[in-house]
Design a binder for these strands. Structure first.
Ligand SMILES: [Mn+2]
Ligand SMILES: [Mn+2]
Ligand SMILES: [Mn+2]
Ligand SMILES: [Mn+2]
Lengths: 221, 221
DNA sequence: CTTATTTTTTAGATTAATCTAAAAAATAAA
DNA sequence: TTTATTTTTTAGATTAATCTAAAAAATAAG
């Protein structure tokens, strides 16, 4: 079991996995090309290879889905990525906006005992620094139901529990605005003109955020 | 600064570095081929490339030496390798015979802040689990003077402080014999017939070890 | 100082991953 | 339902890293 794939194959599997979450189960060549910063022609070549290895279901011109084997491989990479992010933040003191790129490299280290020991060392965390759930060693993901701030109603309240955008510039902004994970918010006004939203943060300070920001912050109701 | 080299280039640099310690400053093509598990022809190709990048001094048929740039790059990889080994043993609870292969992968992760934070997190260790010195962030190595047990004399004593063979089979044996790092020994007999050596371990138990084992255990007198 | 052996380099191929440009298929518009 | 546009695939090349077999240089033997 636990066949080993090349660095590149792993990145394609992960890209397909991320693209196929949220009911979009079938993923297109162009989507993959964009996510992996390659060209469509390169993607087609790789899709043939992954199909040959039974990691994806691929029919010419009809997009791809992951097989069970492919999905397992992808989830395992995601598990590693997120555990390493926890390590970097909790143990080494990195900020949440600094860890993604390093984790992109660490996620390709192949050692089951390493990752399981790391998991234990970190206290088997349920989520990474961005609130994303960490698959357990069997591959199961306990995803909490989260809603974008931009989808909330007036007077609704909840706790910030995730983000859907991981760029350093965005994460730093979120932090500066005091909207980090665990923060409690209450929607006080939905401004029709530009879609911006006013809310009360942790029961006291008032804040207005743009729709663009609101779309990328996830709340547990 | 801090130009980034390919995984493969890094492994060649490290191989040349390890081969050129201990006065053998000039390294041959065949030596490199053996250490990197490749063929001489492949090595020649790579040597041209590394010379082109000014990482080695290379004259056809005359072997290679590292340039200052090449040596810095190599030492940095060694630093990363050894720090990760400390992490694996001290924090994750791996045994000293289990960490080398994982560290071979981790040593190629490129992030200066990562490795410096890891260094601090580990308490700036001076040596790795096998007793090898860890270069500091400027590349300086504080190597203690060590001597092989096989080079010691009758009645000489010292403390085991390193090994020169890293295979799991050897390290497990050393551990089983109670000759781990920090152990004090006193040479009681040099057996002429087969070169084996008898010694007193930590002031009490007696033990005889083969010349082959004695050659690969290093002692601080 | 020749000849034989060993070491190293070159020549020519192969594999993985990528690209550009052109062809083919699918989708959208008219 | 033709025509136009977009998406995807193929064709043909390129680059990095590797290999085997053969040639060239260095070293060792006689
Ligand atoms: Mn990430
Ligand atoms: Mn994350
Ligand atoms: Mn090691
Ligand atoms: Mn070591």
């Amino acid at each position: 079991m636990s066949n080993t794939h090349s660095f590149t194959e792993e990145n394609y599997l992960k890209a397909i996995y991320h693209l196929s979450t949220g009911n979009n189960s079938v993923v297109s060549t162009n989507q993959i090309a964009e996510m992996t910063n390659t060209k469509a022609a390169s993607v087609t070549d790789m899709l043939k290879k992954l199909a040959e290895k039974n990691l994806i279901n691929y029919i010419k011109y009809q997009g791809v889905t992951l097989t069970d084997t492919g999905k397992n491989a992808a989830v395992n990479i995601v598990r590693k990525h997120r555990l390493w992010e926890v390590f970097l933040v909790e143990k080494l003191g990195f900020k949440w906006d600094e860890v993604h790129d390093i984790a992109e490299e660490l996620e390709h280290i192949n050692s089951e005992s390493l990752i399981n020991r790391l998991d234990d060392f970190l206290g088997n965390p349920a989520a990474d620094p961005h609130g994303d759930p960490i698959p357990d060693r069997s591959g199961t993901i306990h995803q909490k139901k989260l809603v974008r701030i931009s989808d909330m109603y007036q007077d609704q309240s909840g706790m910030i529990s995730g983000v859907s955008e991981y760029s350093s510039i965005f994460l730093k902004l979120v932090e500066k605005m005091g909207l980090t994970l665990g923060t409690k918010i209450l929607i006080t006004e939905l401004i029709e003109f530009d879609g911006s939203i006013t809310l009360i943060v942790n029961g006291n300070s008032d804040r207005t955020i743009s729709r663009e920001v609101a779309k990328n912050i996830l709340v547990m109701l």
